[in-house]
Design a protein around this nucleic acid. Sequence first.
DNA 1: GTCTATAATTAGATAGAC
DNA 2: GTCTATCTAATTATAGAC
Lengths: 199, 199
Amino acid sequence: MKREHSEDTRRQIVNAALIAITEAGFDGISTRQIAARANVSQGLLTYHFKSKDALWHAAADHMFELANIEFEKALSSAKTKNPRDIQRTLIRQMVYFNAEHPELMHFMIENGKEDTERSRWLVDTHCRPFYEKFTSLMSDIPDIDLPHAFYVLVGASGLIFCAANECRQLTGKDPTSKAAIKRHAEYCANLLIPDEHHS
Amino acid sequence: MKREHSEDTRRQIVNAALIAITEAGFDGISTRQIAARANVSQGLLTYHFKSKDALWHAAADHMFELANIEFEKALSSAKTKNPRDIQRTLIRQMVYFNAEHPELMHFMIENGKEDTERSRWLVDTHCRPFYEKFTSLMSDIPDIDLPHAFYVLVGASGLIFCAANECRQLTGKDPTSKAAIKRHAEYCANLLIPDEHHS
DNA sequence: GTCTATAATTAGATAGAC
DNA sequence: GTCTATCTAATTATAGAC
């Protein structure tokens, strides 16, 4: 039995950091609070990650790794039928992912709004590959208008979950219920890729 | 000539606070930095607003006051024709407002994500009136699906401006150019309220 | 009404014990 | 590999001069 459970500890810290940073923002959470959530001491964060900034990078990597896995899975499960089916699958998957992981959109909005080292790293390392995947899957749509269509889709599919708390307070309805997620997925898919016989 | 230019100073501080809080977040900006941007001393903030939290409330009030004025103006300028025209005007106005004032969406997302005193105040004081206006204007759409349609529209109309910096870094295109704003407005209006002869 | 000076607290990072 | 203790700097809020 190895006594050096450093990998587990590292993972625990990254998970706690990701949740905490999403909830309170990078400046809104202290390394002490993150350490407390991960049930370790504050000094240990500096041992595993040399700075709060490095911990932020690790949390972002972890989040996008998960996102990439789930999108690959969803797209490969859509047996290569006609492009429309693939596009609708992609849109539904964006809804489902945003519903389960609103932290991604929060992360992007909070850290992407200003031109900083972090925003450039985020775009270059993690966003561009996804954006290029998106454009290649959507390129056959005759009058597709990029980048408008991209941000319309991301905003339409994600905001209700990104603002889930606000939605509950404002409307009394919980957008993260199974039924609401499904409704939202169909709504977005129909809006952006209407059924054949409608066009 | 009155020597007590406290109203001007107050306004200056509120403006500086709104911009700064939008850029860096409530926790990301210090009262000293806000004071520096307003060209006053830090102590003066406590004189005019008893706390950083009170300054935040003042900044939010200021922002929503402006939003309400602009929406009233836009909607009253759309001479009461058929509902579709009013709806399209509302959507275009949302795009134009988000383009000029991305701070509103930032504010809502950052301060609405967790259930706090601030988020409840924001929803009850400023969001609900707008949401009710929205639903009454959209209620004649036969199969409107609230709250999905609301968040789809807000997200679709606003995210590209909320993430304007990211959009520039990612795509090289500036979504805040006059042409891009107009394109986005038409895109959103057509998507959500298609022309009569299409339906 | 505005400023300077400062008190009390908390932040991120480091040093060294175990 | 993990913890406790501590350093330095920055935070909000206050007190008092002008």
